[in-house]
Nucleic acid binder design. Structure first.
Length: 271
DNA sequence: CGAGCAACCTGCATGC
DNA sequence: TGCATGCAGGTTGCTC
């Protein structure tokens, strides 16, 4: 489900209901996600207060008095704040129950998501320690991207989706950003000029900011914390548009499989 | 070390 | 209607 804009949308939606809430207990119905959910959570989280809600890449960090809960939504994860006694449906794997009788419910049919715990600074956690810069930060700029891409001959789409290079850019937004930058997805990283890296950085930032402003992209099941869909889908130029005319030049959008992911592009606009 | 790709899961659309 | 197939927003970790 989520790329960076969707996770950021979820974070913003959860801020108001969760900040300051005190955890009463955690209910783990299915611990087998991407990694096993640490059962120690049962003892660690009761009585802890939620101090902050942060995001690093696609990871959502629930900072509590005693440590940090690290959520990842994988492909199909959803987080919603609902009444603690709401009926439990299939794939409702974890409830973080609060003293005010609400709960943060994690639902994840495909179970590619994760819920982990650390008492250290979260950025030191093995999953977060080697992540690249945030795409919306000043650290992610043309000079940086050019210097990194110079060292790789892999196709540029795989490189911008590599979280060691830059976090948060998944299949939808990588596809869209390459269109807006006029770069063909199969181009080798080390073949891009400085100007193209500049265009790509600009396009990534623009697409992500725009998607956040629209509340993310709802394809199938993504919903915001308040249960509403995201509205970015209407702004997609190439993702899912193969067979349709390019909005810029009318050439039919094509698709190919790259790094085991479907990639759409305009053969005229992207070179 | 980099690059390619299998694997982890379930649900859904499609075609026979 | 039923069944097989392929595809889906992510990421790690195995091979070569």
């Amino acid at each position: 489900m989520p790329e960076l804009p969707e996770v950021e949308t979820v974070r913003r939606g959860l801020m108001q209901p969760l900040l300051g809430a005190i955890i009463e207990r955690i209910i783990i119905r299915q611990s087998r996600l991407r990694w096993p959910i640490p059962l120690a959570l049962t003892d660690c989280v009761p009585q802890q207060r939620i101090l902050d809600l942060q995001r690093r890449g696609k990871y959502l960090l629930l900072i509590t008095t005693a440590g940090t809960l690290i959520y990842h939504l994988g492909m199909s994860g959803q987080l919603r704040v609902i009444a603690a006694d709401s009926p439990v449906k299939k794939h409702d794997h974890v409830d973080l129950v609060f003293q005010n009788h609400t709960c943060l419910r994690l639902t994840d049919p495909r179970r590619f998501g994760a819920l982990l715990w650390t008492t250290a600074a979260p950025q030191l956690h093995p999953l977060l320690a080697h992540l690249g810069p945030e795409p919306l930060s000043a650290t992610f700029n043309a000079a940086y991207l050019y210097s990194v891409l110079q060292r790789h001959k892999q196709n540029c789409k795989a490189l911008i989706m590599n979280s060691k290079i830059v976090v948060g850019v998944g299949n939808i937004y990588a596809t869209e950003a390459l269109f807006h930058a006029g770069i063909h997805p199969t181009r080798a990283g080390n073949s891009l000029t400085k100007q193209q890296c500049m265009a790509l950085v600009t396009a990534i930032k623009r697409v992500l900011k725009h998607a956040i402003a629209k509340g993310g992209t709802t394809l199938k099941d993504f919903i915001q914390a308040d249960g509403k869909p995201g509205y970015f889908k209407q702004q997609l130029f190439v993702y899912g548009q193969h067979g349709h005319p390019c909005q810029r030049c009318q050439t039919l959008i094509e698709k190919l499989s790259l790094n085991q992911r479907t990639t759409a592009y305009c053969p005229t606009c992207q070179r």
